[in-house]
Write a protein that binds this DNA or RNA. Structure first.
Lengths: 285, 285
DNA sequence: TCCATCCTTTGCATTCCTGCACAGACCCCC
DNA sequence: GGGGGTCTGTGCAGGAATGCAAAGGATGGA
């Protein structure tokens, strides 16, 4: 199998046309045509449907495309490894995130990154205050959000699931979210649904809420990555509609192209994407 | 970046010489030479050290090679997806394993495989009896072992770590392994180290041993994948030397090339390899 | 209805790559 | 010490892939 053919197929699938793919790849569109048709003939399998307006993925080919995209991810990983080998980057990269993510998701990933890029120092800072992503005393932010402000450039690493958790016997009242995290959709749902009078305690930290819930003070809306691992808590099925939020990995637009920051951001993104399936929790998933 | 070059680099790294790689790839050795040197010149980075006896990986290139191998895994995944898309295989594939692995590792993986290869029915059977791998009423076996008997053909998916676990306060006696699992190295260590008089209970199932340990009957040697997830148990650090055992995915030599069995075995192997890092547990890792 | 635009597809000249054959170097073993 | 085997590296010729240019077709808007 010719690995290069897959790059052509991917580009055509993304752009929706031979000409578009040719522009992206920087080759003649005739080349794209011959590579793609040749690939299909070698395989005896149609990947695309031809229309006059362009190429569209044939039905029942989503799985094939997904496998190819996984291969592209791996190819980007090779590129990063080569970058590191070629010019061992040094310096400090500051990563900021919420305290929950800093505890439940990032540590093993940061440790792996540290090991892969020696010479680079990665600093992890937990800050729930600047969750608005505007003022950011860091090089890279890992934040749940529905959209990214203009000053920041980044990509989505995956989706965080939320659930309602309580200790056995502690399902009486509710625990409320204050501060910036109150903006995530699950928190807004709670603000709209639960009367303030029923709320027994407040915090701006999911970790603190988890401890309060574990102590039996009430039900708390928590990210599944926080709640599912805790043996003291049980998830209340059907207590809230399924609400997921994107987790972004972003940098200031000005800092996007600083080599060491770009490298860490890309490695972080790849590692988070690999980890992301478990974020949805055991019911949402 | 030319993805095909990576195939050449991988082949040379594996075979240790241009000529060997050329034989494996089915091309002329001059082609391999030109692709590899061209790749290095494009990158401005030496991947290999040239000797008169062959090519050897240059120092500090292990990370690069690992990334390339990950890409190769992904390429195999593309091949499998294409196989499924081309000729949707149908029929029954019977997978057998130990009860612990059937519970702690396989279910989500089997579910994924089922989703990817519709039309195929995958049956999972937990059997601790035939752990010797000789008589096997299944198409594919997933078993911990140190080597594979001659009748079977397979590959290693990863290494299972073991630890000593007990409930708080229940660290008095020991719990022993009987039956075929007594052959894994961790069990042999226990048989040699612990006097039989100190053993408070026996079972041929790690799952049963876990329940006994959780009930406070004593310390049990358990695979980390079984013990680490259980909130009732704590792992006793330093209680035993680090002992890992390979987990094999194998089929009868006669059945190796049956398409649907081959496909499931390859998908299973790839999925297990992705899952394998967590098998070593939190201390061994 | 016609035109402009975008797309795919095909023929042709050129460029690049591959395979072959050969030379030189090294190692092992007789 | 010398021959057989294996390895890397280099010219040369044939062939495959590419870029270019032109043709054919569909769509959407004026």
């Amino acid at each position: 199998m010719d690995w290069d053919d897959i790059q052509f197929v991917l580009a055509v699938a993304r752009e929706g046309s031979l000409s578009g793919a040719a522009r992206v790849l920087g080759v003649n569109h005739a080349t794209v045509l011959r590579r793609v048709t040749g690939f299909e003939q070698k395989l005896g399998l149609a990947i695309f449907e031809r229309t006059a307006r362009g190429y569209r993925l044939a039905p029942h080919r989503a799985r094939v495309l997904a496998a190819m995209q996984a291969m592209e991810e791996a190819a980007l990983g090779v590129g990063r490894a080569l970058t590191v080998a070629r010019a061992p980057l040094a310096g400090l990269v500051r990563v900021t995130s919420t305290d929950s993510i800093c505890q439940a998701i990032l540590p093993p990933i940061i440790a792996r990154l540290q090991a892969e890029a020696e010479g680079l120092r990665i600093e992890l800072s937990a800050q729930n205050q600047h969750a608005d992503l505007a003022r950011m005393d860091a090089d890279i932010a890992v934040r749940p959000a529905e959209a990214l402000p203009d000053e920041l450039v980044g990509e989505v690493a995956g989706r965080l699931g939320f659930g309602v958790y309580a200790a056995p016997g502690g399902e009486a009242g509710w625990l409320g979210l204050s501060g910036p995290i109150a903006r995530v959709r699950a928190a807004r749902w709670m603000a709209e649904t639960i009367p303030q009078a029923n709320i027994a305690g407040w915090s701006d930290s999911f970790l603190v809420l988890r401890e309060m819930a574990a102590a039996g003070q009430g039900r708390a809306v928590l990210p599944c990555v926080i709640g599912d691992g805790d043996p003291r808590l049980a998830r209340l099925a059907g207590a809230m509609p399924e609400m997921n939020v994107d987790l972004w990995v972003a940098s200031h637009a000005d800092m996007v192209d600083v080599p060491r920051i770009r490298l860490v951001r890309e490695m972080l993104l790849a590692a988070l994407r690999q980890d992301s399936p478990r974020w949805l929790g055991q019911i949402n998933g």
